[in-house]
Design a protein around this nucleic acid. Structure first.
Lengths: 315, 315
DNA sequence: GCGCTCCATACGCATAGAGGTATCAGATGA
DNA sequence: TCATCTGATACCTCTATGCGTATGGAGCGC
């Protein structure tokens, strides 16, 4: 038992619509770029398929029959829908449209993310960006789950099936209460923080970054005494402001402006932290490819090493 | 410069939808009643036209690409719209659906019209009936103007391009105030109304019927003295009830039941009046043909001559 | 490694459709 | 009455499409 198949060439529908507009075989054929006899044939074939006349061929005037009048709006809509649908599918297929799901680390909400989104949106305005804040570890999981297409995270470690590209390479800064004695200097000797209480993100939120920070202290000769945890950098700064402790953070967080908090370059300033975009290595989506292309082409997303001022200049 | 032509066989869209539902070439092909290779070809051709892959053929699983996902609802809607549209056009073309515009004389609102409409509606429930009350002369004009398709009128006269079919052939009755002396008898001698004031419809409303009535009086030896005109029979009866005069009317108006009005057979009872349906002779509309068929087939629409009781029996 | 499943490809055939030119038929108007 | 306009027909060609069978080739499980 085979289904009923339409088997109705759309050209016939198109011819029908044009003829319904012109109500004149000669002119309609001209508009279609064909001779008049083929048009007569097409209409005839369509009428055969419908089973009823669609036009009254009265001498001197061509008019729509009631059946034709009934079919006309349908034909228009079908042709329009199909044209738009094909265009939409092509747009999605080519990456000019669609939905790109991006996970990002909260600390990047004020630095890398805005510029990136701005540039991308400008180039691909039809793409819907589905942006969600996630810490590093969930981003890795979400990429594998196909829950997000792009991750924006810190301190990427090699992951099977995932690729990374560094977007930003920045130094660490000391986060101090403004009233802290060390805040009086432009540069802070890291070892002088040895006895300060520390406010840090929980290791689980971003193990790589956490280890980076503690490693930094270790090379300065001490282990940071963490008295307080906070899940967001914003909170870390707030806690520092209240005097609960000090912190070490990527320079990006200078963008968090709080009266009672001072950010200071640290010595030695060799340790840096990287922000990277992550994606599934085998992801064929042109949306992902385009985003990576935007990242590569836009040099403002890749400040030269050492120019931490670049970040604060953005304020 | 020729327009862009879709040139997209709908079979391909159908195959696409089925495959999108099955996500398995073999099963989809089976559902379509074709072998698997042709299906692969159709999908491939469709993808070529779209310009992008619509399915991911991963080993062990077929899935829709974003472009395919975008196209799927469009394809469904297009196929559905077209199927419904064609069905609707066929229904209209065959006369199972559409709009039939009917003009009718007010005096038939209680007799011929209800039964006719009921039978027709039962047989063609999808047809919209556009019914408007009109007197005879405007019906003729409206038929010519293509403002109505069917007229229901009295005393048809031959008209070029119009055809008529008698629906009802009935005698005249005298319309008297209930208190009138002549109302005491079952039958009224027409000549006895010679000196009564008459209430009649203006001649312009229906010249044929008017002439019929005055002719009736003439054969009885008098000319009716019209003291009052009314445009509707309902009004005529009301005026008779108030004692303003008497009237002669088709037996149908017995259906107008007013306490103070009596309807009486007249002598001689030879003169009759006919109700007919009218249509454009060259009207090809199946709706009109169907209505005429209903008129012919339903004998209750055509009471046998002389049985005026048929009319009152309907009450 | 072997067979199985599943999709793609290659090749052949039949047909429908689109397009053309030439021509006919009916109505109309000078 | 004849030329003209308009649409329908007839006839031909070419291409696209659809469908079939046979076969290739990549994973996958035993």
């Amino acid at each position: 038992m085979r289904m009923e198949r339409p088997e109705l060439p759309l050209q016939q529908l198109h011819a029908f619509v044009v003829l319904a507009e012109e109500l004149h075989f000669g002119r309609a054929a001209a508009r279609l770029g064909i001779a008049q006899p083929p048009l007569s044939q097409q209409i005839r074939r369509l009428e055969d398929k419908v089973g009823h006349a669609l036009f009254n061929r009265d001498p001197g005037s061509v008019t729509l029959t009631p059946a034709g009048l009934e079919l006309l709006p349908v034909a228009r809509r079908v042709l329009g829908d199909l044209a738009h649908g094909l265009a939409a599918a092509r747009a999605v297929g080519s990456g000019r449209a669609g939905t790109l799901r991006i996970g990002f680390a909260a600390s990047l909400a004020l630095t890398v993310l805005p510029g990136l989104l701005h540039t991308y949106r400008q180039r691909f305005p039809q793409v819907t960006l589905d942006i969600r804040e996630m810490t590093t570890a969930p981003q890795i999981v979400a990429l594998r789950d196909n829950t997000i297409d792009i991750g924006l995270l810190r301190e990427p470690a090699a992951e099977a099936d995932l690729s990374f590209r560094t977007v930003l390479d920045e130094p660490f800064v000391a986060v101090l209460p403004a009233a802290h004695p060390l805040a009086a200097q432009r540069t802070v000797q890291l070892r002088k923080l040895a006895n300060e209480p520390f406010v840090l993100l929980p290791r689980a939120v971003g193990p790589q970054l956490y280890d980076r920070i503690t490693g930094l202290c270790a090379t300065a000769g001490f282990t940071p005494r963490t008295t307080q945890h906070a899940v967001e950098w914003q909170t870390v700064c707030a806690l520092v402001e209240t005097g609960l402790g000090v912190s070490l953070a990527p320079a990006s967080i200078r963008r968090i402006r709080l009266k009672g908090v001072a950010f200071r370059r640290i010595e030695p300033g060799t340790a840096r932290t990287r922000v990277a975009v992550a994606w599934r290595t085998n992801d064929q989506s042109p949306l992902v490819a385009h985003l990576l292309a935007v990242v590569s082409k836009d040099p403002s997303r890749l400040p030269p090493s050492g120019r931490a001022s670049q970040v604060s200049d953005l304020g």
